[in-house]
Simulated scan of single mutants.
Amino acid sequence: MGQETFVYEFVGKKLTEGSFQWSAPSNIALVKYWGKREGQIPANPSLSFTLTHCKTITRLDFQLKEISGISFDLFFDGQSKEEFKPKIQKFFERIRPYCPYIDDYHFVIHTHNTFPHSSGIASSASGMAALAVNLMQLEQGLNPQMDANYFNQKASFLARLGSGSACRSISGAVVVWGAHSEIAASSDYYGVPFDGALHPIFQDFQDVILLVDKGEKKVSSTVGHDLMHQHPFAQQRFEQAPANLSRLKTALETGDLEAFIAIVESEALTLHAMMMTSMPYFILMKPQTLQIIEHIWSFRSQFQIPVCFTLDAGANVHLLFPKAHKTRVMEFVQEVLAPWCQQQHFIADEMGFGAQKIDL
């Protein structure tokens, strides 16, 4: 399915005003997306777990207006946020060819996160995904014949144009973004639910996010992606990622926790290795990040409990494990890992299933 499929064609109906509200979760990539081509196209495929509690909740109010053009107000945590508006403006400009009806309305966007903004927990992913599904709810009002599959695919397509990883926050517990020969219907344009038979051991996976640093990252993901263009190891990385996705697909289907752990941790460290070997180079991990990783390795070795870590583009650590071990692992988190977190804060999350409509 190509991009032209998502161009909206007016069907003769306009809504005058209304409001929608949706939540969209963050997601944590296990095979990392790092590097992109023009048009928010990923340089390699990625695979992620969708979360449940770390999410953005966005209400979209819309009103028909006489003067055509992009027009919106933005409120974050109840406060007007002018500094966030350029990113939303750019998003609207990018989706305008596919959603020309946005010129007909003035929008008021009210949004908030259940987790710290800009700290490496994919807040842009959940934020753009939440806005995209609200816009698709409007489009569905203009075109009531739209089916759920098209709704989700176009929502993912639109979300990608705001933040690449946002396309993995629309639907599915495990989502693949980027064309891959072993994933049916996979696409560079939108995320698709993992098409394999997910082994039961992975169906209730837990993710404890250890908040090492709740501040804004010193180097944005956008800058990091751009540095892959001239990166000395870019080509090797772009070959490694699809191979790792193939291996991870097998592990997810067979329940091979040992292989899962090896791939996921290697992917996390490779992501940060790319940052440390770019020019200019940068480090997003903190000393506490490394201490937590060392403790995770020690705990896994000592107790033979299948815990592992992954990292997003930030200092925080995601601790992944099967729900069957939750009681013992949470003791470990409280007693050993929490002291390395900022103000001992962490978020206990688990695998989720995507965006959800909230009745007003």
Results as ranks from 00 to 15, higher is better:
residue 282 F to A: 10
residue 292 I to K: 09
residue 134 N to G: 04
residue 74 L to G: 03
residue 162 G to N: 09
residue 85 K to H: 06
residue 16 T to E: 15
residue 329 V to D: 08
residue 71 S to Y: 05
residue 226 D to R: 15
residue 121 I to E: 01
residue 278 S to N: 06
residue 286 K to L: 07
residue 110 H to M: 05
residue 35 G to M: 08
residue 107 F to H: 07
residue 191 G to T: 00
residue 245 L to R: 06
residue 11 V to T: 15
residue 233 F to N: 14
residue 339 P to E: 09
residue 325 H to N: 12
residue 174 V to C: 02
residue 116 P to D: 08
residue 354 G to S: 10
residue 42 P to L: 09
residue 255 G to W: 01
residue 94 R to E: 13
residue 235 Q to N: 14
residue 198 L to I: 15
residue 297 W to H: 15
residue 329 V to R: 03
residue 17 E to D: 14
residue 242 P to R: 04
residue 243 A to K: 13
residue 196 G to A: 06
residue 62 F to W: 04
residue 43 A to L: 05
residue 250 T to C: 10
residue 95 I to C: 07
residue 122 A to Y: 06
residue 336 V to M: 10
residue 24 A to K: 09
residue 343 Q to P: 07
residue 243 A to D: 10
residue 134 N to Y: 01
residue 212 V to L: 02
residue 204 D to M: 01
residue 168 R to F: 01
residue 129 A to H: 11
residue 266 S to K: 13
residue 146 M to K: 05
residue 128 M to G: 12
residue 194 F to I: 02
residue 172 G to D: 05
residue 3 Q to W: 10
residue 138 L to G: 12
residue 214 K to Q: 14
residue 166 A to I: 03
residue 167 C to P: 10
residue 17 E to K: 15
residue 125 A to K: 08
residue 86 P to F: 04
residue 294 E to Q: 15
residue 54 C to P: 00
residue 210 L to C: 10
residue 124 S to F: 04
residue 220 S to V: 06
residue 188 D to I: 00
residue 69 G to V: 06
residue 276 M to D: 13
residue 334 Q to T: 11
residue 80 S to I: 11
residue 128 M to I: 09
residue 144 P to D: 10
